[in-house]
């Protein structure tokens, strides 16, 4: 299995800040389990998945902000849309996603907020 931290290291070595989004808790039915992760770059490029769909798009948007501000935040993703709707968010659950910025400061030490 791919190690997501190999990707993180690659970006940090290039001097970039990335956001690591992790599902830290869930309620009800969600597309992925607690601990699932994805890396989001400053340009919104995504590595890994926390389940796809519009929930992931919301997290991606927030993650770009986290990269910019270098301040972590927690995003609540609601997947409670009506089952009859066209929305992909019909899993029925809620997940909390912690988004954490990682970067390498000038002394070469890796930092996360």
């Amino acid at each position: 299995m791919e190690n997501i931290y190999d990707d993180v290291k690659e970006f940090l070595d290039k001097g970039e800040t990335v956001a690591v989004a992790t599902i830290v808790s869930t309620k009800g039915s969600t597309p992925r389990e607690v601990g699932a992760k994805m890396v989001v770059t400053a340009w919104g490029e995504i590595l890994g998945t926390i389940g796809g769909g519009c929930g992931e798009a919301d997290v991606r948007r927030e993650a770009i902000e986290v990269v910019r501000t270098r301040k972590p935040r927690t995003v609540r993703v609601d997947l409670l849309d009506e089952i009859s709707s066209d929305s992909p968010a019909v899993c029925g659950g809620i997940m909390n996603v912690f988004i954490d910025p990682w970067w390498k400061d000038e002394e070469g030490d890796e930092k996360s907020a």
């Binding site: 190690n3 931290y5 927690t74 912690f98 030490d109 890796e110 996360s112």
Partner: peptide, 25 residues
């Protein structure tokens, strides 16, 4: 060693480890 290096090492050595992150305090 920096954290990312250590996390990569943990994985490549097949060691068991737990990364603890404060989400809110």
């Amino acid at each position: 060693d920096a954290l990312v290096e250590e996390l990569i090492k943990v994985k490549s050595e097949g060691a068991g480890a737990v990364l603890i992150t404060v989400v809110e305090s």
